[in-house]
Design a protein around this nucleic acid. Structure first.
Length: 625
DNA sequence: CGGCTCACG
DNA sequence: ACGTACGTGAGCCGG
């Protein structure tokens, strides 16, 4: 047994690394004592990386257990006797703490220790969830951050070592890249061991401090219970994953690579050797006489830093294409703009989607995209590796690669205009509530109020744009740019909107004042704390609406859990839930999901509509498979 | 690693 | 005093 010790904030700690099977005896005795006294024990795992499912056996290297003063580390990769001891401890301990437990370690334990997500999550407290309930912002945004290091510095000891950064420095000294360091650093490296032990000591000490802070801030306990449950449901979705059509994806990858190369060669003929270099592209286009002025605008388009802008909108205009890539015959198409556009799209779709799918597939042909259930500052979820919340929706090509299970079909269930309804509910917008209750199309209803009974399709578009704009906190200029309508008309329409829905502006003002009186933190109706940036307090409307809409999804997931529907769920996508169900049960499952996503929010009906597709996700976007 | 671009809701 | 479009993940370039 190797011994480490140290001190944090004047409080000593001791850590022990199990080296031989005999060393497991003191570990077991310690675990029994913790279990008997029902002392919370922090658990952490060290792995070869983040690909829990695609890596294969040997992924889990070390497992650590610790309370506020004592910790043990087990060398899982040294043999099954250690795996079994870790699994036993995880099962017998009545109260565990993890940092990002449901987001990572619960999945690792489930897959590599054989202790299920359901079993551990039922008794786990996640310090990352607690921390986000105090402040959801990342460090970049002015928050505490949700990493163990940042939280420890604030809540435990400013001098607590940065174990992540420390490890990266070790990797560097061993001439290992960061990505391979976690897999290749020798298990008996003293810093690897010491930091592994420290992580559970820190997590243990963090928990009571975070719990006290939450209590002091008046954050309801039920909110924490709810978030732990949502996190567990998301973990269950990650575990089941989705089937990847590998043959299709390999072909897709080749086709996209071919297209990217072909159009890159065309661009090279105009002197652009790298289509992803905005500098090269703008220079070449300038040389061809392009002025970068879009129709209806007087000045060239520029980026924030003042350079000429050659983004998709600009290039599509130059290539004489509309937003759907159809020729508009308004000018002579610029062949370079066209080639750059197509090469970039094919290249991005190949690398961000096709490559990513194939590098994340497990031995059983499934991908398990990671869901962080409260990632955004509004608590919206995010999905990574691969980012399947952001697959192209205008073209079925990419979504076609993801399949329902064998014998299943895909079901997609969307909330209907959920953010508009949430706004109506939160701001108590009388006329909107009447329209929603009557089942009217909200944007047409608004268009009628703003433009009169004879409103046109164009007017409806403007009304829709203003609706979004109000939810985002936007002004006339951006709304005009988005809708393509002249700014004067948009200004008039926005003034009229404020007249017909006076509650929206009034509520926004009240929310800003409330937040101001609460140290710049808005509190949603579920109790989520939403910190505002001092210079962007107008964002309060968006934060409250976006966060409450997110809780509509969260509440629906909990209801679906009660209804036993979680095994069918595959992916949350903000206002949509993707599911896979046996063909013969699809109607029933779809109806049940729809029911769970239908409820009343402060007198406003929140409603959802399910769509049943074929086997591939792409089939819901008009494909034939 | 910041800037830019682009994919989604 | 005034007005401000919101939230993500990912890849590439160039310093």
């Amino acid at each position: 047994m190797r011994h480490y010790s140290g001190s944090l904030n004047g409080q000593p700690w001791d850590g022990y690394v199990v080296e031989r099977p005999d060393d497991l005896e003191p570990f077991r005795a310690w675990v029994r004592r913790q279990a008997e006294s029902r002392t919370p024990v922090a658990v952490d795992t060290e792995t070869c990386g983040l690909k829990i499912y695609a890596w294969g056996p040997g992924f889990l290297r070390m497992a650590q257990f610790g309370n506020e003063t004592d910790a043990f580390a087990l060398p899982i990769e040294r043999g099954s006797v250690y795996t079994e001891a870790a699994a036993w401890a995880l099962r017998i301990l009545p109260d565990i703490t993890g940092h990002n437990w449901a987001g990572f370690d619960a999945l690792v334990s489930d897959e590599h220790l054989g202790v299920s997500i359901e079993e551990t999550c039922a008794k786990a407290t996640d310090t990352q969830i607690l921390a986000k309930l105090i402040d959801p912002r990342q460090k970049m945004e002015g928050g505490t951050g949700s990493g163990l290091k940042d939280l420890s510095a604030v809540y435990i000891d400013p001098a607590a070592p940065d174990t992540q950064d420390g490890l990266k420095a070790v990797f560097k000294s061993l001439k290992l890249k960061i990505a391979e360091g976690f897999a290749k650093i020798p298990l008996d490296h003293p810093i690897y061991q010491e930091y592994g032990l420290l992580d559970v000591i820190l997590t243990s000490r963090l928990r009571p401090r975070l719990e006290r802070t939450l209590e002091k801030l008046g954050v309801p306990k039920r909110l924490s219970v709810y978030e732990h449950r949502v996190a567990r449901i998301c973990a269950q979705m990650v575990r089941v994953g989705m089937v990847l059509d590998e043959d299709y994806t390999v072909n897709l990858q080749a086709d996209l690579a071919y297209d990217a190369d072909r159009f890159a060669e065309l661009a090279a003929g105009h002197g652009v050797t790298s289509v992803n270099s905005p500098r090269q592209v703008t220079e070449a286009l300038l040389g061809m006489g392009e002025d970068f002025i879009l129709p209806g605008r007087s000045a060239p388009e520029r980026t924030d830093s003042g350079a000429l802008k050659a983004d998709k909108a600009v290039l599509q205009f130059m290539a004489d294409l509309d937003r759907d890539w159809k020729p508009i015959r308004s000018r002579k198409p610029n062949p370079l703009a066209d080639a750059v556009l197509r090469s970039k799209r094919a290249g991005k779709w190949r690398s961000a989607y096709a490559d990513n799918f194939l590098s994340n597939v497990d031995a059983g042909g499934r991908i398990h995209a990671n869901v962080q259930s409260m990632q955004a500052r509004t608590f919206r979820m995010s999905v990574t590796n691969p980012a399947v919340q952001t697959l192209p929706s205008g073209d079925k090509m990419i979504r076609r690669a993801l399949l329902a299970d064998e014998g299943h079909v895909m079901i997609s269930t969307d909330f209907q205009a959920v953010e508009m309804r949430v706004l109506a509910a939160l701001a108590d917008v009388k006329r909107m509530k009447v329209a929603i209750a009557a089942g009217e199309d909200l944007h047409s209803f608004t268009a009628r109020l703003v433009f009169g009974d004879n409103f046109t399709d164009k007017d409806r578009k403007v009304a829709k744009g203003i609706g979004f704009s109000k939810v985002f906190g936007g002004g006339a200029a951006t709304t005009a740019r988005q809708t393509g309508a002249p700014i004067e008309a948009v200004q008039r329409a926005m003034a009229k909107y404020d007249q017909v829905y006076p509650e929206v502006g009034r509520a926004a003002k009240d929310w800003r004042i409330e937040a101001f009186n609460n140290r710049m933190v808005a509190v949603s109706i579920t109790g989520h704390r939403l910190p505002l940036d001092r210079d962007r307090t107008y964002a309060v409307t968006n934060y409250l609406v976006q966060s409450t809409a997110r809780d509509c999804l969260g509440q629906s997931l909990v209801t679906m859990d009660d209804a036993g529907l979680v095994p069918f769920l595959r992916l949350p996508i903000h206002d949509e839930v993707l599911a896979s169900a046996p063909k013969s049960d699809a109607q029933d499952v779809a109806r049940e999901i729809q029911r769970c996503m239908t409820f009343n929010l402060r007198g406003v009906p929140i409603e959802a509509e399910a769509e049943i597709g074929l086997r591939s996700w792409g089939s819901l976007y008009g494909a034939d498979y």
